[in-house]
């Protein structure tokens, strides 16, 4: 070790790292950026195809139900609010997280049901995947978003079961937050798709 000639100052051991953001949240945010790029790809494809059409929506094809879906959109936005309440409740001792999660799931199911009824009616009016890019983009974009709602509902169900059975622990609070990130993303992306797909103007 050191000789008498030099004065030795002990080197402190570097302190344990405390990450600013938990791994679960970093991972989820990275995943959501990927998802955002997926929807960006879909939206740009829609805009390109819409821009090629001389008239949009094409004449002689059913119109999309702006008002009914508007109400449906409100259900989904409301589910975002209840999800935020669930996160807030998970921070408090004795907060009713499970109840808010259940309300979120109920509103999400209502949105999905509304979309299902709408699809059934549009198919009845003759708008199918084969009726040109108008029907094709509608079913592809709304279908991919709907798949995300289903995935978010499954994640929500798992989180709700844990919160309902054993109450909130720090690990479960973390899973509520990570689940909420995904849910809020699915909620936030919908109004963009709604405005783009349902607005009755466009074309060259």
């Amino acid at each position: 070790m050191s000789t008498a000639a030099s004065v030795t100052v002990p080197t402190p051991r570097p302190v344990e790292r405390r990450p600013a953001v938990t791994a679960g949240r970093v991972g989820m945010v990275l995943f959501l950026f990927t998802e955002a790029m997926l929807f960006a790809g879909l939206v740009s494809a829609f805009l390109v195809l819409q821009g090629r059409a001389p008239v949009w929506p094409p004449p002689g094809q059913p119109r999309l139900p702006v008002a009914a879906t508007g109400v449906n959109t409100l259900f989904l936005i409301l589910s975002g609010v209840t999800m935020l309440r669930a996160v807030a409740a998970s921070r408090k001792v004795g907060g009713n997280t499970a109840t808010w999660l259940a309300a979120t799931g109920g509103l999400g199911l209502a949105f999905l049901l509304g979309q299902g009824i709408e699809w059934a009616r549009l198919l009845g009016y003759g708008l199918t995947t084969r009726s040109g890019v108008y029907g094709a983009t509608f079913y592809a974009v709304v279908g991919i978003h709907g798949t995300h709602v289903v995935a978010a509902l499954i994640a929500l169900a798992v989180t709700w079961r844990r919160a309902d059975r054993g109450g909130i622990t720090p690990a479960r609070r973390e899973s509520v937050v990570v689940c909420a990130l995904f849910w809020i993303f699915v909620v936030a992306v919908w109004p963009i798709l709604y405005v783009l797909l349902y607005q009755p103007w466009g074309g060259r």
């Binding site: 998802e35 790029m37 790809g41 995947t129 084969r130 094709a136 079913y139």
Partner: peptide, 18 residues
């Protein structure tokens, strides 16, 4: 993401008649 979007549309073109 955009490639996945493109691939989904390609698969739909092949299977769903879009």
């Amino acid at each position: 993401g955009p490639l996945v979007a493109g691939a989904v549309m390609l698969l739909l073109d092949r299977t769903a008649g879009t």
